[in-house]
Nucleic acid binder design. Sequence first.
DNA 1: TTAACATATGAACAAGTGTTCATATGAGCA
DNA 2: TGCTCATATGAACACTTGTTCATATGTTAA
Lengths: 121, 121
Amino acid sequence: MEIENESRNPQDQPVADKELVEKVRQKMPDEEPLYDLAELFKVFGDSTRIRIIWALFEADMCVCDIANLLNMSQSAISHQLRVLKNSRLVKYKKSGKTVYYSLNDDHIKKIFELGMEHIME
Amino acid sequence: MEIENESRNPQDQPVADKELVEKVRQKMPDEEPLYDLAELFKVFGDSTRIRIIWALFEADMCVCDIANLLNMSQSAISHQLRVLKNSRLVKYKKSGKTVYYSLNDDHIKKIFELGMEHIME
DNA sequence: TTAACATATGAACAAGTGTTCATATGAGCA
DNA sequence: TGCTCATATGAACACTTGTTCATATGTTAA
């Protein structure tokens, strides 16, 4: 009985360089943090949310002023702020009827700047 | 005829702090780069693409080895590599039948590391 | 209390996305 | 030439997502 030279994975994919695949596999982070990272970038992957965050770079703002700034409905902004809140990217402070949102993470600005550098290249 | 105290935008949103909205509006970047930035993060916002990129941090790889590493079909990987290629995040080099992909941007690793920092917080 | 206001929320729908499947392309080899 | 292999591609489909619309919640002021 011969051993096949080319290894195969469960999906029956041929492997060109089995050693390399194993080496890289061992260096890969666990699935979960990579999944979480994708979830974070998914949040950044919408221009409304990008613009909300960019506005909050400049100043803490209430929902209606953000809606006005971006020329969008209060409801749309509120929905998106919830997404940002769920990702711990923004926090809020209530003041009477008004709710003021602000950024909750110092990394965001740096991430955005690096992203901009890629775009400008 | 009286001038209303509260200004309204085309969507009939009340404005709490008109001056602030104007100040922030002037500091906001143009729509287009913000739209492009969202497009970039959209590309990062998928765990398959995140894992492909992370693999390429370790080594340049051909399509079938990436498919094997991630235990996914060659077709799925090829489709995703095209997305990465269109965003100028990866480049490729042909060698006979085989196509080797590699990263095309030094910012990516930094962006991912900062993203990870947010997750770990 | 009632009215006005700021915000949040749920349902619904159109638009977008990732994978699969089948097949095309193009290079190397017999 | 014809066959095999690595990759690319198009169509189809299920699934996800962002907005709108209607309405609920909760606060302030009269």
